[in-house]
């Protein structure tokens, strides 16, 4: 008998995608900072190893995403993508700071998803060029490194905001339950996401 106090917000596929991103990002960030910051480079000093960790984490990240989508709930994933892509009149009002009823994702979450996805692609492309440019000088461009490093700063800001909303902010931190266990309180959902219909 399902517990009526809770409703399902994220499927296993969605949660798997989230945690693949989260864990890969943290490993990439840590190893990337060792490669990037002189004081850390000196302290760790095993650049070839850290470089390999960074590179293979990126490969594992992309492979894991592909596997989750391939073997997960693909139809559900497509529905979620359409949901994220659609900004209606309420979303536009919400983004202008006015109260407006929100669906399963609020407009800020939709925006964050779109920006993160675009930047992640750019991260992967610039990362590939850094790796390949070392092997074929025709693919080395002066800006590749700046793009890659700049993305790191942008993502760091997004991550801080994301963690604040997920862990600290009283109105939104209940969402952490949704991305870990899958379900959220029905009461919370009605209050913060009134337009969300299962």
């Amino acid at each position: 008998m399902p517990d009526l106090r809770y409703i399902r917000r994220f499927s296993r596929t969605e949660r798997a995608l989230h945690w693949v991103h989260a864990s890969a990002f943290l490993i990439l960030l840590a190893s990337g900072l060792v490669l990037y910051l002189p004081s850390l480079s000196e302290r760790v000093s095993r650049r070839p190893l850290i470089k390999a960790v960074h590179l293979w984490t990126a490969v594992a990240w992309i492979a894991a995403l592909a596997l989750v989508v391939l073997f997960g709930d693909r139809a559900g994933f497509r529905r979620t993508l359409r949901e994220l892509d659609r900004f209606d009149a309420d979303d536009r009002r919400w983004l202008r700071g006015r109260p407006a009823p929100q669906g399963r994702f609020n407009a800020g979450q939709k925006l964050n998803a779109a920006v993160s996805a675009a930047l992640a692609v750019l991260f992967a492309v610039s990362g590939f060029l850094l790796w390949y440019g070392e092997r074929d000088t025709r693919f080395r461009f002066a800006s590749t490194l700046l793009v890659h490093d700049g993305l790191m700063y942008v993502f760091l800001v997004l991550l801080v905001g994301h963690l604040y909303l997920a862990v600290i902010h009283p109105n939104t931190r209940h969402a952490l339950r949704g991305i870990t266990l899958g379900t959220v309180e029905a009461k919370w959902a009605r209050q913060h996401h009134p337009k969300w219909r299962e």
């Binding site: 692609v121 750019l122 610039s126 800006s143 590749t144 700046l146 700049g150």
Partner: peptide
């Protein structure tokens, strides 16, 4: 996305 890829062109001046 195109805006993102174009970052390869504008990143240096913006960074400076």
């Amino acid at each position: 996305m195109a805006g993102g890829i174009s970052a390869f062109a504008w990143a240096s001046p913006v960074w400076r």
